[in-house]
Structure formats: structure tokens, C-alpha cells
Design a protein around this nucleic acid. Structure first.
Length: 464
DNA sequence: TGGGGTTAT
DNA sequence: ATAACCC
């Protein structure tokens, strides 16, 4: 679909700067094809080795030295000095020290400062356009389509320097100033440069950006020139970009499991996936996944940039060995104390609490179990300021969830505990008799009778 | 592999 | 509640 649009839109009109009687630039009468949710301008912003950058801002003496950020026995990320010396992301601390004895390590298990800086970046980007989607702590997508349109309308045709691309163009492809899609992406590259400037001037952070017509392509192209540079993808190069991937596992949206299933079907390259029978793929993976990933293989991605807004959940986890109920309780108290501070600062109230464990087992790649229940309403009320009154009852609730998952009368061995607050709701101003009251599931009686049946799957602590 | 996040089923 | 995806 997007390929068709690209082909249909490339028109050749008069020379740049030729004006119509009204004095408007030539492209002012160019319209995006009818019925179009089409031809967007998307930027993907990707901070350089984010945790390491935050650490170097916290302690400037670290600048210029090879720096790694450590969580448990892993170097989860490192600055470019360290990368030059052979340190890789998620490298074992021993291997990293062996490769690079001068490596300076800082502990990065407490994500507080990273999280705070991450939201500062998102908020800065939201000043450009409110349509910002977070991906992890260090990446954001922004839909620039509207902003680009506004700049095009205000563009005067006698501004010769106004139409200069900022940063790299993928494959060095020439820009056609008579192609409205090229012009729009070019304006997007200028906005991307302004974003990166603002991030550096206001927050001291560097990063990459990719500008393209959808999220997939913007993300792929942002990584082409790597630290602190940006790249624009023209529609004519999209096939080259996706075929530059060496394996389908490099395609965002195709994860570990899907890669294994595709490999079992003999699919390993992007072209394998493009040319594979759609019918068979749908039968193997289900229609939803099959259609989505096969479109991805053509560089097509119609998923919108979905504004992230405030977080949907808060969680704190720690990997450690745990084989007794007392150890578990101590860790749960620790995790909960941090969470209560965070939830207090957020202002909203969590209506659901969840406990997650990982059991020791020689392998089994992903094994986590969880139990959740509603936060008792008397505790919700107290959340916000008198925070330590809520500690004890919350720990009680969590320990009941714990014993529901783990038979404490039998030996057990856990390797992780995590506590999560979710189902966050704005302060409850709903009053009895108002519309709000009946639309608030926790208040309205109908919510307990089946319409919100998912709630019935929660473990109700009152039942114990 | 850590310490987080999201959406879909 | 789990499974998949992302960093």
C-alpha cells in the first residue's frame, strides 16, 4: 500500500520557486491522495548509550574514560570509549574486564535517575508534537506529519536555504525538490535536527534520529550512522534498507519465538519472508501475526505513533537467590518501599497489585509466574501521604499472593522477585449518583456481576 | 542476561 | 495469567 502511494505521488511540476498568481510555492496545491491516512513523516529518536550518558552527567570525571554500567554480573551498556576497546552490551563483567582492564564500572541497578531523565526527553519531544510514543527508556517515536504540513504552509518560495536536508540521506540518494514526499521528509529532517539540538542544549544528551514514512523504517534508518547522527530515508530506498538486514531476527516486531518458528519453515532472510506463501504463513502463525510480519518484510507498517502518556504500571524487581519466606518478605518490603515512593509522586492510585517470581530451574528460557489482586480500597484511600501506614497491610497482601504461588512448606528456590502496581486511576473524585460513579468499575455494583468479568479472575484476598 | 516496559490472547 | 514483543 505504501509502495503504491510512493509511486503515485512522484510528480514533476515546474521549477522550484516558480510561483502561481497567488504567490504561493508550487507545492501548495499538492495534495496527499484522497482518503489518506497515508504518507506520514515519522522520526525515531534513539539516545546514545543512555545509561552511560546519564552516569557521565552525574559524575563528569567519568567522561573520556571507558565506562560500563553494571547490573549484577552484567555490563548492560557502556560508552563509546569502552566499545572501542571491545566491550559489548550485555557482556559478562569478567569478559569485559578481561577485554578492557581499565574499564570503569558503575552500578546501574537503581533505575531512578535513568527513568527521570528518560521522561525529561519524552517531555521535551512532546513540546514539538504531542504525538510521542516511548519505546523503552531511550527511544521515542514522534509523528511529525502535522508539524511538517504547518511548516510547508508557511514556507516562502524565496527562501533558497529553506529546503536543505539536515544530516545524512540513506544511500546518498539525491533529493528531488519536485517530489512533495521528498520535501516533507526533508522538513522532517530539519525538525529532527532541532530536537537533537534541544536535547543537547537543555539536557546534555546526544542521540541518533531516523526520519521516514513509518515507524519501522524510521527505526531501522536511525541506526545507520551511529553515534549522534541522523539519517533520512527516501521512499525509493526503502527496499534497499530492509534488504540490508542480514536476518529476519533483526526486524523489529519479529522476536525470539517468531524467529524460531520462521526458521523451522525455512525462512531466514527478509526476501524469504516476502516471497513465502501467505496462506501457509497464516496457518502456521495465525492470521494476525502472519499478515503483520509479512507486511513488515516489505517495509510496510501502518501502526500509528500511539502517545504513551503517563506509565500504565510501576514495577521494581531484583534478581537474587531466595529460598525462605523470610528472605522473600524482606525483599518484598524493600521493593514495596521504593514503589510507594514512586506511586506517591505520580499522584494516581494503583487499583491492582501483582507479585512476580522466577523459579530456579536449570533452563526453561522464560519462566515467570504471577498472582495479582485488587488493592484493598482502604489502602487506596491512604496512598499519597501517610505512606508508612500502608506498608504493613500491603506486605500482608503480597505475602498472601506469595504463599498462593509458592508452597512454603516445601523447599523452594527462587531467582527473582518483582512487585508491580498497575491499573492506575486518577484520584477518585467520583461521587455516588454521578455518571462518573457508574463508570468507575471499583464503585459500581454492575462491575462485580460479569460485565467486567476479568476482575473476577483476580484473587480476592477476602476469600482467604 | 538485568531491570524495566507494552499489548494481545 | 500468560505469552509475545520492545529496550
Amino acid at each position: 500500500m505504501e509502495r503504491a502511494e510512493a509511486g503515485a505521488a512522484g510528480s514533476s511540476l515546474g521549477a522550484l520557486g516558480s510561483e502561481e498568481p497567488g504567490g504561493l510555492p508550487w507545492f501548495h496545491d499538492q495534495v496527499v491522495p484522497a482518503g489518506s491516512s497515508s504518507s506520514r513523516v515519522i522520526v525515531h529518536v534513539d539516545l546514545d548509550c543512555f545509561y552511560a550518558q546519564v552516569e557521565m552527567i552525574s559524575n563528569p570525571e567519568l567522561k573520556g574514560k571507558p565506562l560500563g554500567v553494571q547490573q549484577k554480573y552484567l555490563v548492560v551498556t557502556c560508552n563509546y570509549e569502552a566499545r572501542k576497546l571491545g566491550v559489548k552490551k550485555l557482556m559478562n563483567v569478567r569478559d569485559a574486564k578481561e577485554k578492557c582492564p581499565q574499564l570503569v564500572l558503575v552500578n546501574g541497578e537503581d533505575l531512578t535517575r535513568y527513568r527521570e531523565m528518560s521522561y525529561k526527553v519524552t517531555e521535551l519531544l512532546e513540546e514539538f508534537s504531542p504525538i510521542v510514543e516511548r519505546l523503552g527508556f531511550d527511544e521515542n517515536f514522534v509523528d511529525l506529519t502535522e508539524m511538517v504540513e504547518k511548516r510547508l504552509e508557511q514556507l516562502q518560495s524565496d527562501e533558497p536555504s529553506a529546503l536543505t536536508v539536515s544530516g545524512h540521506v540513506y544511500d546518498n540518494q539525491p533529493i528531488n525538490l519536485h517530489d512533495i514526499l521528498h520535501i516533507r521528509l526533508l522538513i522532517g529532517s530539519q525538525i529532527a535536527a532541532e530536537m537533537r539540538e534541544a536535547m543537547y542544549n537543555q539536557l546534555g544528551l546526544t542521540g541518533c534520529a531516523g526520519v521516514a514514512s513509518n515507524k519501522l523504517l524510521a527505526k531501522l534508518v536511525s541506526g545507520i550512522f551511529k553515534p549522534n547522527q541522523q539519517t533520512l530515508l527516501l521512499p525509493e530506498s526503502s527496499q534497499d534498507l530492509i534488504h540490508s538486514l542480514n536476518h529476519i531476527k533483526e526486524m523489529p516486531g519479529i522476536g525470539y519465538k517468531t524467529t524460531k518458528r520462521l526458521e523451522a519453515l525455512g525462512i531466514s532472510s527478509v526476501r524469504d519472508l516476502q516471497t513465502f506463501s501467505s496462506k501457509i504463513l497464516e496457518k502456521e502463525l495465525g492470521i494476525s501475526v502472519a499478515q503483520r510480519i509479512q507486511k513488515l518484510s516489505f517495509g510496510e507498517d501502518n501502526s500509528p505513533v500511539t502517545p504513551s502518556g503517563p506509565p500504565q504500571s510501576f514495577s521494581e524487581e531484583d534478581s537474587f537467590k531466595c529460598s525462605s519466606e523470610v528472605e522473600a518478605k524482606n525483599k518484598i518490603e524493600e521493593l514495596l518501599a521504593s514503589l510507594l515512593n514512586r506511586v506517591c509522586q505520580d499522584g494516581r492510585k494503583p487499583h491492582t497489585i501483582r507479585l512476580i517470581i522466577r523459579r530456579y530451574s536449570s533452563e526453561k528460557h522464560y519462566n515467570r509466574e504471577s498472582r495479582q489482586c485488587p488493592v484493598p480500597s482502604h489502602i487506596i484511600q491512604k496512598l499519597g501521604i501517610g505512606n508508612y501506614d500502608v506498608m504493613a497491610p500491603m506486605v500482608d497482601v503480597l505475602m498472601k499472593l506469595f504463599r498462593n504461588m509458592v508452597n512454603v512448606k516445601m523447599p523452594f528456590h527462587l531467582t527473582l522477585l518483582s512487585v508491580c502496581f498497575c491499573n492506575l486511576k486518577a484520584l477518585n473524585t467520583a461521587k455516588k449518583g454521578t455518571i462518573d460513579y457508574y463508570l468507575t468499575p471499583s464503585l459500581s455494583t454492575t462491575s462485580r456481576s460479569g460485565k467486567h468479568s476479568f476482575k473476577m479472575k483476580d484473587t480476592h484476598m477476602e476469600d482467604f
